[in-house]
Design a protein around this nucleic acid. Structure first.
Lengths: 287, 287
DNA sequence: CTCGGTGATACCCACCGGGTATGACAGGGC
DNA sequence: GCCCTGTCATACCCGGTGGGTATCACCGAG
């Protein structure tokens, strides 16, 4: 009577995201009428109006916004439970591998640190198998929440550590990556104001939650794209120092004196308590 | 095909906690056979053995342990979604009250701070209604997780802030609370070693997760009990300084020079983003 | 006024979650 | 050895309900 079923949450989230019963039903692989009815039942059981049905489409009420946020979190937690349970399943089956941990890392970031961590951990006596999951830009939090990853390397202030346990691993400055031939590439150091205002080299723009901020710079999606654009003399980028690991011959790195330092953390879901995870964290903090 | 239903999670958690299908079924208000079948279906769908059925009862496998932990978290998140949605529901109904926030506070702790916070926040122009939920000892985290509370005052190092966002509000020392007539009550200050080793005044023991640590002191459940036992000259207790607010005439407080400081935080679920909550946090951090 | 597109209603069916009765099996007492 | 007890699994049945199809009610745009 007061327990939401995950099916109901899935349905509501779909409708709330599409703001359209027909499209939501299609996305869910079902017909529209039963979806309509399910949402009505949900509203009756919660005793709360979730959607404002106007002429032409629907809108979320305050309660609907709340259920959208909280429901997403609940769905994530549920799928995380399923995924992690499946992953833990092989361990005690005859012939099953021992525990495996999935480590999410922003592709290309903290390469050296990651290397040292993996080597050091593999040398531990009862090390679990570590699967490295290269992730997109700010995706690590999502991966941890929905169980695709068990632990992640995250970079403050770019990633938010909210909701996770974490330990600090490393602090580094930032550098500007310029085309090797550019006049500024000869400088010993630069400031943020310098690189933010180069007429012929607009700062590249990364997608944030799927959308690009407005600006003159090129819209890029991955590091290779960016590296190429820099090499071609079309843009400039700001990165943590560890990005030197993947610089091209046609790139020049110049330290930024006033960029905020980047702190690499190892982060994991606050409630998780597995021996393998504890071992990895211990190794990471004692590198 | 790979979505766990909350019903299945509820069933499994019940069985995993009872380690007995019959008792679990009784707790769930159903018969044992359908429960057995549901768990089997769950194992089939996950492709993982969750329970070791030996002669005489059941035991959890590794995967079962994982699902117990993760499933509890998922269930908490789900009931939190329902509760918070219901609570948000009144807001935009005609005649409905405006947003309400539930603030969990350890009963009796930080009384003065709480008073100032409530007064200051009530003076804000668009303040939400604050419901104060007095909670047990380490219960605040649970209340935040399952949605009975939206925000809490927590006390490091007693409460763990893991999994929540938080801001520091106040740091205070600790005091020993003694019977007024006791010889040590005349001292200007004490050390932890002093109060831990008084032959006629064994330290009272609080329950931790429902069980008492072994020791000579009396087992107490609430502050009133404790206050009375101190007044009767039977025990001694260590508290943050703000506990002076509820001292009896027959109590004497003596500062502890070497007790770890207690830091009061305001904490909330990491993902929550409501205007009312933001306002309360802002007020709290600018007291 | 009609038409297109929206969500709601009506009705039906099959599936499955739940109940009861019973089985299989292992220990413990005598 | 026996039976009895307590456990979880199986067999079978039933009713509720989740889902489908057909259709309605409504409103804005022409």
């Amino acid at each position: 009577m007061d327990t939401l079923e995950t099916r109901e949450l899935r349905y509501f989230v779909a409708v709330a995201e599409e703001l359209h019963f027909g499209r939501a039903a299609e996305r869910l692989g079902m017909a529209q009428p039963p979806l309509s009815r399910a949402i009505q039942q949900l509203e009756r059981r919660l005793g709360v109006r979730l959607l404002q049905r106007n002429r032409r489409g629907v809108a979320l009420t305050g309660a609907g916004e709340m259920l959208l946020h909280e429901g997403r979190a609940a769905l994530d937690a549920t799928t995380a439970a399923a995924r992690r349970t499946r992953r833990a399943g092989g361990a005690d089956r005859p012939g099953g591998r021992r525990n495996r941990l999935v480590l999410a890392v922003k592709a290309g970031a903290s390469h050296e640190l990651l290397h040292k961590l993996l080597d050091a951990y593999a040398a531990e006596p009862d090390a679990a198998e570590i699967e490295v999951l290269p992730s997109g830009l700010c995706e690590q939090a999502e991966l941890l929440r929905d169980g695709r990853a068990d632990v992640a390397l995250m970079h403050a202030p770019f990633n938010s550590l909210a909701g996770f346990d974490s330990e600090e691993l490393m602090t580094e400055g930032q550098i500007a990556i310029l085309p090797a031939g550019h006049p500024l590439a000869a400088r010993k150091s630069l400031s943020l104001a310098d690189v933010g205002d180069i007429p012929d080299l607009p700062l590249a723009r990364w997608p944030r939650h799927g959308t690009y901020a407005p600006g003159p710079g090129p819209e890029i999606r991955d590091q290779t794209q960016l590296a190429q654009l820099i090499a071609l003399g079309r843009t400039v980028a700001v990165f943590p120092e560890s990005a030197r690991a993947w610089l091209w011959a046609e790139h020049t790195a110049v330290p930024l004196v006033d960029a905020p330092p980047v702190v690499t953390h190892i982060a994991w879901p606050a409630h998780s308590r597995s021996l393998a995870l504890a071992g990895l964290i211990h190794t990471a903090t004692h590198l």
